Computed example of a mutant assay.
Amino acid sequence: MSVSEGSVRGMLAVNLRQARLERGLSISELSRRSKIGKATLSQLESGAGNPTIETVFSLSRVLEVPISDLLDARPAGELTVVRAAETEALSGEGVDLRPLQRIESGEAVIEVFDQRVRAGRRQDSLGHVGTEHTIVQAGRLGVRVEGREVELGPGDYVRFDAARPHSYTALDGDVRSVLLLQYRSDQRLHLPHPAPGPRSAP
């Protein structure tokens, strides 16, 4: 089955290889640093793998690049509409993330995600580049950052250094939230973008 460059797998395949080469890393060395098997990395670079949140965040941490340098979020336009049914989710142990938009303004880069934490599940992260902002829309969310825990309800907001180990837990049913990842523009590799693949018009 062919993989379009517009899919999460297709974009990750192109961008992962470019980021790895930019850092001067072999697949073996990237495997050692990220604790991801060489066969898995080879599959991801060929577009045949099945990336998870854990994998992408681990690669972001090791390569020291924003998530969008790996997933190639949509460029901004005068009017951008992202339909829920047309956006591929990146899933992990407890979370489904849908990349919506990357916003660049001056020295700031902000990635916007629709985030769902599944009922009774927890999503752990060892940390990654950037500052994390979460706004809860529905449900009750437990957030743990280096041993400190807070509970958030609808309308509540939390901000923390994403480089620190952290986790999200759905405390009462599914949790819907908006996740913003903020970076400095100098933290990006400024990778050349691949030719756009087939994509629905806004």
Rank of each mutant, 00 (worst) to 15 (best):
E29T: 01
A163H: 11
I67G: 04
A85W: 08
R20M: 01
K38V: 06
V8I: 08
S42G: 15
I135Q: 12
G24N: 06
G77F: 09
T55C: 11
G130V: 00
S28E: 09
E93N: 15
H193R: 15
E64D: 08
T52W: 03
A19Q: 00
I103P: 00
P202N: 12
V158C: 15
Q43D: 14
R159G: 08
T80R: 11
V56Q: 03
M1K: 06
R20L: 03
R164W: 13
G10H: 00
E111A: 08
G147Y: 09
R33N: 09
T55K: 05
S46F: 13
E5Q: 01
V136G: 14
L44A: 06
G147V: 03
R122A: 04
R9H: 02
R32E: 14
L180Y: 11
R23H: 01
E45F: 02
G92P: 10
L79N: 13
R159K: 15
P198I: 12
G139E: 07
V143K: 13
G155M: 13
N50H: 01
G173C: 08
A84Q: 12
S7H: 01
L25W: 05
V82P: 13
D186P: 04
L171D: 09
P192S: 12
I53W: 04
R32T: 04
R98P: 07
G92E: 15
L126S: 10
H128D: 04
A201W: 13
G6N: 08
E29I: 05
G173A: 10
V95Q: 15
Q182L: 04
S200Q: 11
T131C: 04
M11E: 06
D72K: 02
R188N: 03
L25I: 00
G155D: 15
R74K: 09
G142D: 09
G173L: 12
S177K: 08
R83Q: 10
G130M: 07
Q187S: 02
S26M: 12
R74H: 05
I103C: 03
G147K: 09
V56A: 07
S46G: 08
V82A: 13
G47I: 03
P198S: 15
G49T: 05
Q43W: 03
P198V: 13
A163I: 13
R33A: 07
F160W: 13
R164S: 14
R199D: 14
Q182D: 10
Y168M: 15
E111F: 01
A170F: 03
L97V: 07
E111K: 00
T40P: 10
S125F: 02
Y157G: 14
T52Q: 09
S91C: 12
S60M: 11
P75E: 08
L25Q: 02
L191I: 05
A163D: 11
R98G: 01
S4Q: 11
G173H: 01
N15K: 02
L126C: 04
R176V: 01
L90H: 04
E151W: 02
D124K: 06
A195C: 03
L100P: 00
G49C: 05
R116D: 06
R184I: 00
K35R: 13
Y168Q: 11
H166Q: 12
L189D: 09
L126A: 12
V143I: 15
S46C: 06
T131K: 12
H128M: 02
Y168D: 12
L90S: 09
A162S: 15
L12M: 01
L21M: 02
F57T: 05
H193N: 03
S167I: 07
P66T: 00
V158Q: 14
S26R: 10
I67K: 06
V62F: 02
